[in-house]
Design a protein around this nucleic acid. Structure first.
Lengths: 143, 143
DNA sequence: GCCTTTCTTTAGAATAGTTCTAATTACTAC
DNA sequence: GTAGTAATTAGAACTATTCTAAAGAAAGGC
């Protein structure tokens, strides 16, 4: 069984859990995110998917991305008011946004640190999620 | 000397440092941010300023806010793709975004914690800034 | 297997927030 | 005062995204 098939099965399961259907569009969008994990925008995903399935529409790409986010298979990432970027990395991690190159890097977060960060919240604040973003410059242009 | 006068003087100084002029528009926009620190959007600032100076334009409010941000007197805060919010709190702090009420709360960050967070960056990553955002619900609706 | 219902996709219009443009107005320095 | 620069203004333009309405695909009941 290929990796793609495995992913497709996992995707179908997650979708079913939310009462949604597995469709070719959802599968291909998810596959593209897994294949090149460079935090693409919806437009970039659209371009990549279109190469393999020219009839797909931008609206569908937006729909699929939203669906994947709502199934917790993909994270939506925002820097300032730039276009939303999509990230299939599900481990707890922060993002490093390189202001020169525009590239985004995942930075793994040790669970203990996340706990420490959460612990600064005063009584009465219940956080569902914590987002940590670095802005700066990375020495190595690629990754 | 009143507080507003002090602020105006501080603002004028900061602007001069950047080779910019102190204008009534910049002063009033800054004053409004200091007066009600509820992380208003540009539109909200526009409405508040307009009450005191009806001839101001939305474009000017955007210009002034950008100027204040570039002078490091104000921080721009973004949640997902919502409108940018503005915050005159210059101490290092995180933001708690209450998903129910839409309110934003400042959460002070101990310098040691910020250091710890920065220390997760691998060699080669030079962060100019770190942003920490909590999403969830706060017990007390007001603040 | 057909029919109904529900879900999904699609193209294009619409929207929100922000920035741009070009003209006017206000300062500042000489 | 005049020249040169900076700031403001109204409205157009722009970008990323969502909405709308119609068409297409899949699933369940019988």
């Amino acid at each position: 069984m290929s990796i793609a098939t495995l992913n497709a099965a996992a995707l179908a399961q997650r979708l079913a859990d939310s009462g949604l259907r597995a469709t070719p569009q959802r599968e291909i969008v998810y596959d593209m995110l897994l294949k090149k994990r460079d935090h693409p925008t919806a437009d970039e995903v659209f371009a990549r998917v279109k190469a393999a399935r020219p009839t797909i529409s931008l609206a569908t790409v937006y729909n699929c991305l939203q669906t994947l986010v709502s199934c917790d298979l993909v994270r939506a990432v925002n820097f300032e008011r730039g276009p939303t970027r999509y990230c299939p990395n599900l481990r707890p991690h922060a993002h490093f946004h390189d202001e020169k190159s525009g590239q985004t890097h995942d930075i793994d977060l040790p669970p203990r640190l996340l706990e420490k960060v959460r612990s600064v919240l005063p009584r009465g604040f219940a956080a569902k999620s914590v987002e940590i973003t670095f802005h700066g410059q990375a020495r190595h242009a690629s990754r």
